[in-house]
Design a binder for these strands. Structure first.
Lengths: 146, 146
DNA sequence: CTTGACCTTACAGTATAGGGCAAGGTGTAG
DNA sequence: CTACACCTTGCCCTATACTGTAAGGTCAAG
């Protein structure tokens, strides 16, 4: 199977598959006489695994770790379970931040409805946006591939 | 006021302030005889405005738009209000995605507790991570500066 | 023999918000 | 005169997961 067919079957792209190989997520495949990558059937499962992992918020780096366990002859289940715990906590943190941000935004929308633009002081650009608003955490973070 | 003092007063850095200027968020300040940036008191409010905007999830690009209204002699309130609406919707979407992801992760943690690593088939790397899991949206996105 | 689809590598660019470092000028204190 | 703090510009680097483009090789069909 050439790279294009693998990409097609997995809903991926040839670029992505070469990238996964470069990142150590896919083993370097055999080559045809002409130098083309020649994949076996198991490649399909590997690429699907990568996509499934990305869908639940794993980075390629994390998936590489998981795959490394397999390549060392170990079951990656325990490591995956640990990653799941960590991810869940991460998501909880993000959720809390987002809920807080949502409240702040709602408060500002209410303010916007009551303040008169004519009273907006030029020096501070806009009176809708003021310091000391209750959002100090900065980002939401990428949980699943960007 | 030199750039270091402005940075200190606003809790920013000289790099960041020069960056804001390069991005059109701060007007090019006067210069001393020696070529140093020489800020007036209003610069303080501008930088604080930028930080406040970032804290509620505005990108520098969005803040530049807001500032542009002021620089064109208009009140930016209406535009800010529109941005707030948009941001709030964005956050709602992220929240929904994250909640869904959180559920999926919880389901996988439960599965991990019941599956035996000895049954994990090497071909698919790990039986904890399977396709068709109910998370299709990909990223959480940055809402506030990273 | 040529066309076209497919493949190869390598380099650059995307978005965001700066940080790090180099090489050098300025200004004040001792 | 020298040390030292501060300033200048300019260029590259960070993370993530690729995509785009260039320049060229392979292979089957017509």
């Amino acid at each position: 199977m050439l790279i294009g067919e693998l990409a097609c079957q997995t809903g991926s792209t040839t670029k992505a598959i070469r990238f996964y190989e470069a990142q150590g997520l896919l083993p370097p495949p055999a080559r045809t006489a002409g130098g083309y990558r020649d994949y076996g059937e198991d490649a399909n499962a590997r690429v699907s695994f990568i996509h499934a992992g990305q869908a639940i918020g794993f980075t390629l780096g994390e998936l590489r770790e998981v795959i490394a366990f397999r390549d060392h002859g170990q079951t990656p289940c325990a490591h995956v379970a640990a990653l799941l715990e960590h991810k869940a906590k991460e998501v909880d943190v993000r959720l809390a931040e987002l809920v807080e941000l949502r409240k702040t935004l709602q408060g500002l929308r209410d303010r916007a409805a009551h303040l008169d633009p004519a009273d907006c002081p030029p020096a501070s650009v806009c009176h809708l946006i003021l310091p000391n608003l209750p959002v100090q955490k900065h980002n939401i973070g990428r949980i699943v591939n960007g």
